[in-house]
Design a binder for these strands. Sequence first.
DNA 1: ACGCCCTTGTGAAAGTACGCACAAAGTAGG
DNA 2: CCTACTTTGTGCGTACTTTCACAAGGGCGT
Lengths: 233, 233
Amino acid sequence: MTPRSPRPRDRGIPEATVARLPVYLRALQGMAERGTLTVSSEDLASIAGVNSAKLRKDLSHLGSYGTRGVGYDVDYLVYQISRELGLTQDWTVAIAGVGNLGRALANYGGFGTRGFRIAALFDADRRVVGDEVAGLVVRHIDTLEDVVGSEGVSIGVIATPAVSAQGVCDRFVEAGVTSVLNFAPVVLNVPPAVDVRKVDLSIELQILAFHEQRKADGQAPPEAGWIDATEKT
Amino acid sequence: MTPRSPRPRDRGIPEATVARLPVYLRALQGMAERGTLTVSSEDLASIAGVNSAKLRKDLSHLGSYGTRGVGYDVDYLVYQISRELGLTQDWTVAIAGVGNLGRALANYGGFGTRGFRIAALFDADRRVVGDEVAGLVVRHIDTLEDVVGSEGVSIGVIATPAVSAQGVCDRFVEAGVTSVLNFAPVVLNVPPAVDVRKVDLSIELQILAFHEQRKADGQAPPEAGWIDATEKT
DNA sequence: ACGCCCTTGTGAAAGTACGCACAAAGTAGG
DNA sequence: CCTACTTTGTGCGTACTTTCACAAGGGCGT
């Protein structure tokens, strides 16, 4: 059954909306810094690069925070979106893998303007362990369980080589981490209660290549064509 | 109008499918290296972390490359997906911004197992210009136009600070680049003929935080609740 | 050559997402 | 107070995506 959940408001915000809220938030924070007090859906949408109707529908999922004829109060909207995204509390993050990517992440100042605290950096390479990166001492990966437990890490970032990723992920999960951000080019296996998001540099490039090829196809005369192996060897 | 496009095959592959093809490709390349000859949609789907019906429908957009009762020939499928993604030709890439992230990208060996050639690295900081990174000498950003032209760069990667991103993007576009991969946390403005893809580290973390909060909400008793500013000041 | 079994390819249904267009609601000016 | 103007919030049609379920096709053993 469960005809109506007993919750006051239907908290079912669409995934697509959730993915755009951080974009709106960043745009709004920029406006707030510049002293803008209110903004219309039209203006904010144009800055965020989306359709204004979509923006309004997205925001309507959080509640009716706009004023008709005027627009949205910038500061208030920043607060509401932050709250919805869970940025009014601090999340503790640990990064595994201190190569160039791990360093880039560790130094990514402010990390989305507050909300995230990097508590630890891990690496398996003894030559790196002990180094100071972004104000933190790199720890050996074997201390992962201890540190995750004592620091209360809830988000694990994997910036290791592909072969180590699943192993590190398992250790994160075992230690109690329930969200993982994966930069390694592998599909991670996790229990259903754990969220994984993947960022894959080469996948993005390949998608661009696909569209790039399309453009070239359209402009070139249809003669050439691909050398198509009709035979399977 | 335009009831049927005059093209031989309907080349309209859904965006959602294109985004998954690189994942399948990587899984298949791994199998090929391990000597696997054929694979069923069920098995490949499970490795790629998707539903098997979805996998089959995705592949069906490329053509009927499977054999009923048997599965797909791994090598053949690798070739077909590569071809569709445009990886049978080489794409020339330039990276702007040689901080930690730019270095990580430059050193990302093989870059999706061939298909992409990094032709140049640019930076505005004279202390970095002249350094050798990943076998390339870092050039000053002011040589961007010359190099993009002479090297035939078609994909530009932006790994600069946010403030410089739009400027660098404009220069890329002006120099003839038609695809941009943006790692800076800004929304880029480009002409319609240019493709932009965005990778944003902090957005991904914020999405994770949202879901993390959800989990916490469900488990905690409904008492606490947020301190909700009912008044708009 | 036949029939069984396996796996693909796809029609159809269900679920999401998008964007137009407009009524509702608020401001501002007289 | 009333009218004109602005901008939100949303109902609705359309398009895309996912998933189910099964008929069609092909290999393999006998």
